[in-house]
Design a protein around this nucleic acid. Sequence first.
DNA 1: CTGTTAGCGCTTTCAC
DNA 2: GTGAAAGCGCTAACAG
Lengths: 339, 339
Amino acid sequence: MNARIQDVAREAGVSTATVSRALRGLPNVSEQTRRTVSQVASELGYVVSRSASRLATGRTLAIAVIAPYVERWFYAQLVSAIEGELRQSGFDALLIGIAEPEDTDRDPFDPATLRGRVDGVVVLTVPLTGAELDGLRSLGLPTVFVGAAVSGSMSVRIDDVAVARVATEHLLQLGHRRIAYVGGDPRQRINFTAPVDRRAGWLAALREAGIEPDPSWEVPGQFTATGGFAAGNTLLDLPEPPTAVFCASDDMASGLLLAVRGRGLKVPEDLSILGVDGTEMAQLLDLSTVAQPVRKQGEIAARMVLQALRGEQRHRLEHAVLPVVLVERGSTAAGPFVR
Amino acid sequence: MNARIQDVAREAGVSTATVSRALRGLPNVSEQTRRTVSQVASELGYVVSRSASRLATGRTLAIAVIAPYVERWFYAQLVSAIEGELRQSGFDALLIGIAEPEDTDRDPFDPATLRGRVDGVVVLTVPLTGAELDGLRSLGLPTVFVGAAVSGSMSVRIDDVAVARVATEHLLQLGHRRIAYVGGDPRQRINFTAPVDRRAGWLAALREAGIEPDPSWEVPGQFTATGGFAAGNTLLDLPEPPTAVFCASDDMASGLLLAVRGRGLKVPEDLSILGVDGTEMAQLLDLSTVAQPVRKQGEIAARMVLQALRGEQRHRLEHAVLPVVLVERGSTAAGPFVR
DNA sequence: CTGTTAGCGCTTTCAC
DNA sequence: GTGAAAGCGCTAACAG
């Protein structure tokens, strides 16, 4: 049943070295021998022992994919895309879920345990502490970050500040001046970049338009639909609610939209809503959004590690910034002063 | 940097065997030695080489998680839960995305390649062909299926027929008689059990109530919100539309609900909608649903493989069927004849 | 309680 | 073009 390289060698009348070479398509093997070996190998149902070749070569043919919240749209898309790309190249995708620091359910993530287990690492949205980052670095493995630029490592991302500017400026152009921002939770580590940068972009666009946002326009949304729903209610409860809201994710925007409708108000008549991502739900809800190529980011990230693995300079410093596109749908319309 | 067991042994003044025993908490090591060894090990930043111990023991400490559509709610939840459980026990989660047979983008899944790479397998919703299943079996690895009972292997699932009965009977009790069913796509392999069983339960409940469903009441929904949206339009376009719809997933139900609203109709006044799953979105949309414990299923599945790995009879035949609960919300109301 | 000694199954020089 | 042999780093008897 579990044929070993020895068995194939014996059966084919060659040495194990030749079997190894033949099966891996290395040069210096006669076509004749190669055919015989492949033949015998498949007859015996021989599959190379990953463990053995790992030990012998030092390469694991595995990549760690570190992600918080695999169950959230953005991460699930990325994980799926990355896994597909890796598998296509014969690499295993080792999924590693990491939690918020305050989440005591899970063990803290210790990068050191990755040593010797993977050839490279893809980190989704940098939810790492400084110590974890340092630990990762000290592994000396090709590492690419998705969703944030990390100096000294490769990265794939969108320009989050620009995303927010595009979004906010769109709202401004429509005549809105009271534009709220629904982002993450400032206490969570997931706030590493996207929420912060998007907030920055929103703020900058507003100020350039001569608007100083009221502190009450800024509400956490946890990047979940439920969080967006709650944020919507908070905003609508204000004595003087905003006329438009920029949500840092479509999920939050979706929840917020439902909160508005739940109060019998109308979108966009009573409130314009703009999200980020380009989810299926956003489309069904006719939600305007700044769409980003999520799967593409995953594919590129995967290719980057693999490429770094092949190349001489194992740590090429590549930084890909992918374009986003404003998708105008029915949730954004002219503001109150324009109408 | 990359300390080996030799280094630790030398530094601690003991043999490698002792280091191995000490670090793994095996008996027959004096407390004194154990302390010294651990001390030295951590000083040297020593981490056991997975590859080496794999080769030596034959155990990989890895479990394959085979899933289609990692990006879909149900699968993402499962993957997340399983990964967490595995990691807690020191096991790696090897994510393996498999595609529909007609999806030529991806290589077909060959179970044989798993040989020696993992100690066990968790298969989500059996999207496997017969050949793939046989291949898996012949690996002789503890395998647990989530979402479907597979004879000869362990499984964790809900009773899909019962789910549909509960749902349909709820609708019947409300006075509905024209109850549609929105399920998967009969051409897709993912239709292995859930869609089929749920359809069967719907059909059975209907017939027991003396109702023979019209063929037009049955519409594919692809298990996506977009599919549900389309299905909704198809149903509402019927000369005599149903008064209620049972959707095999909340995602489809969500899409369907939006389709109804998009036409200016009201839920539940014009159409009652009932889903399955218990998603966040269903709650926000005030969608009635038959909720299932998804993460729980994942956790149990993970524990089952691990337990089979420990136990003597490596292939215990366990079948867990988890309870579901009908969550009545605002999308279901009395049918036309009752009002 | 601890050390010695074989391997685990494959890859990889280095000869031939 | 092919084979022999020496590891890769750890674990698992078997002694002591």
